[in-house]
């Protein structure tokens, strides 16, 4: 088709408009990820990269206990953060959708999203100030005479990482659930109660199933990115709270072993994707027709 007639149809113009963002994502996302896959099958030979195809990196990951340990810990932390964040977020999304008057809803959402847009590094660091040995919680509790010794289970370990990440990803969980709740036809709830359901059973049998797409989206949007965070474990995790992302970062920026780092990044990525797919499959009956 000649370019002249191509641009006279709306389809043709839409297809032309989509080219720049598509090509950009292709060049800066698809091709680089392809390069990562390729690199993971090569090896670092001191300063140069040896380009013979090999599974050595994957063999090393499978046989060195520390990589398995870090990966399992990362998946545990991401999973726990996801559960905590989504459970804490659901009532908020429910409150804003069902109990806040329509004209105040965007104000509430605005208040919820603001902390998320403020300097991430400094926010993580401030959790250290809150949870630390002479931090807000410990000096507060000691001042009140509730504890004699500072609490140590909330700093420089996995718990601290979980608390900080649950805080950082809160808006990510609230917004998709809120959007799903907003779409629910309110007359269905009335109908349910007219037919004799209590408020609780109405929630369990009508509201909750209808909000499942939002819940699933919230789970994925928290679970997948948390695997890639190395800031929080570095600042909050101490020696026992390091995660797979810290190892990836170390391989790339300190040990100069890009191929092994690439293989680790892929293993982490494939693990979260596989778990996410299983999760979607388990929930597919709630997602049908959407």
């Amino acid at each position: 088709m000649a370019i002249g007639t191509w641009l006279t149809t709306e389809r043709g113009r839409a297809a032309t408009l989509v080219v720049p963002p598509f090509v950009y994502a292709l060049l800066l996302l698809a091709i680089p990820v392809g390069a990562v896959i390729l690199f993971s099958f090569w090896t670092q030979d001191f300063m140069t990269v040896d380009r013979t195809f090999t599974l050595d990196n994957y063999r090393e990951i499978a046989t060195t206990p520390v990589y398995g340990l870090l990966l399992r810990r990362s998946l545990f932390v991401s999973g726990t953060v996801t559960i905590v964040t989504v459970l804490l977020a659901y009532p908020i999304a429910y409150f804003v959708s069902f109990h806040v008057p329509a004209h105040r809803k965007s104000l509430w959402l605005f208040l919820i999203t603001i902390p998320f847009w403020t300097s991430y590094l400094i926010r993580v660091f401030l959790w250290k100030v809150i949870l630390g040995y002479n931090g807000v919680i410990n000096s507060g509790l000691q001042g009140l005479g509730i504890i004699d010794e500072p609490l140590t289970f909330i700093l420089y370990n996995v718990n601290a990482v979980i608390i900080t990440l649950a805080h950082a990803f809160a808006p990510f969980a609230i917004l998709p659930i809120f959007v799903a709740l907003e779409k629910i036809d309110r007359s269905l709830l009335e109908a349910s109660q007219d037919l004799g359901e209590t408020r609780l059973t109405t929630f369990l049998r009508v509201t909750l199933p209808l909000s499942m797409p939002g819940l699933v989206a919230a789970v994925l949007i928290v679970f997948i990115p948390t695997i890639g965070d190395y800031v929080t474990p570095e600042l909050m995790g101490g020696a026992g709270g390091k995660l797979i992302a810290n190892m990836i970062q170390t391989q790339f920026l300190q040990l100069n072993n890009a191929p092994l780092g690439a293989a680790l990044a892929l293993v982490a990525m494939v693990s979260v994707t596989a778990i996410s797919l299983v999760f979607i499959l388990l929930n597919r009956r709630w997602l049908r027709g959407r």
Binding site: P21, F22, Y24, A25, L28, L29, A30, I31, P32, V33, A35, V36, F39, L220, I221, I224, P225, T226, I227, G228, D229, Y230, A245, I248, Q249, F252, A258, G261, A262, A265, A268, M269, V272
Partner: peptide, 21 residues
């Protein structure tokens, strides 16, 4: 959908892949 993908991708994957390229 593909263009929206970076929204759910771990940032370290974006960082690592661009660093390699």
């Amino acid at each position: 959908g593909f263009v929206m993908l970076p929204l759910v991708l771990p940032e370290i994957i974006v960082a690592v892949s661009l660093l390699i390229v």
